[in-house]
């Protein structure tokens, strides 16, 4: 008689896997990558390649030689961290800085907590913020987009829209940006200065729509963040249009779209329940606007996400999902 396999129920599985989820997110990043390659040329390819290689090799070395566990580099999570890190860097960054960021992101941001799923902070953002604080000058000199003009090596650098607004806000003439439809259009298409992946809001939204369609992420976090940013900046805008720029500008500028769709929704570092996700999203939105408008940095999405990452375990303790029914009162 042949021996049968015994296991407790259920005996079937959805076929979903960590790998599938990671590669779906990577797939969703392709439009943003293509737009970035269009505007920044070979820089996009080089920076992404260095960051990805740095992340994957670091993870492999740590798992094989330090932790002595089977390696998980094939699940795509290190790959994803590398791509997201690259998307958060300016295109003209020196290769060794990128490598340093990648190593820090994986070694400190992920593996020191025990690997995938145990990390408290989003590794890519840990890497980026580490670089931002260590190399502020290099990290804030943004190359001008050089569409169809890739051979032009000395395209020079320029400020991001948010930096321009920050400057104008101090002078009290922010309203010059409000009417410029062209600028909003540029920000949606991606023809602005900024880090590699964040420039095109449209490409990122396409990726986000794909992720929600494939049920990799839910709408809760992105909607909560964007909603909060719109509400908060509208209040400021109507209060004083000369000092505060309009909400659309905030939504489409800087790293908000990238952060909202791809970084804040990171599985391991976001809350587990819908209620928790909304609170988390609102928190990110508020902190982002506070940093952008009142802080000394022009951009605050990455800090906002990291701060809310730290709050996530607490949210998980207090925000329980809606139970099926209220427990029976003691008769």
């Amino acid at each position: 008689m042949n021996q049968f396999v015994i296991s407790p129920s259920p005996h079937i599985h959805s076929g979903d896997s960590v790998q599938k989820n990671m590669y779906r997110v990577l797939f969703a990043l392709i439009p943003a990558f293509l737009v970035s390659a269009l505007f920044f040329g070979w820089d996009t390819w080089i920076v992404t390649a260095i960051a990805v290689l740095g992340c994957v090799i670091t993870e492999y070395v740590i798992q094989v030689y330090l932790m002595k566990v089977p390696t998980t580099i094939m699940d795509g999570s290190a790959l994803l961290t590398g791509v997201l890190l690259a998307f958060n860097l300016p295109g003209n960054l020196a290769w060794w800085i990128i490598l340093l960021g990648a190593i820090f992101a994986i070694a400190v941001g992920k593996m020191s907590f025990g690997g995938l799923g145990s990390n408290v902070f989003n590794p890519a953002l840990v890497g980026r913020v580490f670089l931002l604080i260590s190399f502020p000058a290099q990290m804030t000199s943004w190359p001008r987009p050089k569409m169809f003009n890739w051979t032009d090596v000395d395209a020079g650098t320029g400020a991001t829209p948010l930096e321009l607004v920050k400057q104008a806000s101090k002078e009290g003439n922010v309203d010059q940006f409000t009417d410029s439809v062209g600028m909003i259009f540029n920000m949606i298409s991606g023809d602005v200065g900024g880090s590699l992946g964040e420039v095109s809001a449209l490409a990122l939204i396409v990726g986000g729509a794909y992720l929600i369609w494939k049920k990799v992420i839910t709408w809760h976090i992105p909607v909560a963040i964007l909603g909060t940013v719109i509400v908060f900046t509208s209040i400021l805008y109507f209060y004083d249009p000369t000092r505060y720029v309009d909400p659309f500008f905030h939504v489409f500028s800087g790293g908000l779209m990238l952060g909202t769709i791809f970084m804040a929704t990171d599985y391991a570092t976001s809350p587990m329940t819908y209620k928790g996700m909304i609170i988390y999203g609102v928190g990110i939105g508020v902190i982002t606007v506070l940093i952008r408008v009142f802080g000394s940095y022009p951009e605050g999405v990455s800090f906002a996400i990291l701060i809310m990452n730290a709050v996530t375990p607490l949210i998980n303790v207090y925000m329980k999902p809606q139970r099926f029914a209220q427990p029976l009162k003691t008769v």
């Binding site: 021996q3 049968f4 396999v5 015994i6 296991s7 407790p8």
Partner: peptide, 8 residues
Amino acid sequence: KTNIYDGA
């Protein structure tokens, strides 16, 4: 052995 256990 009469069967193969495959659970947790």
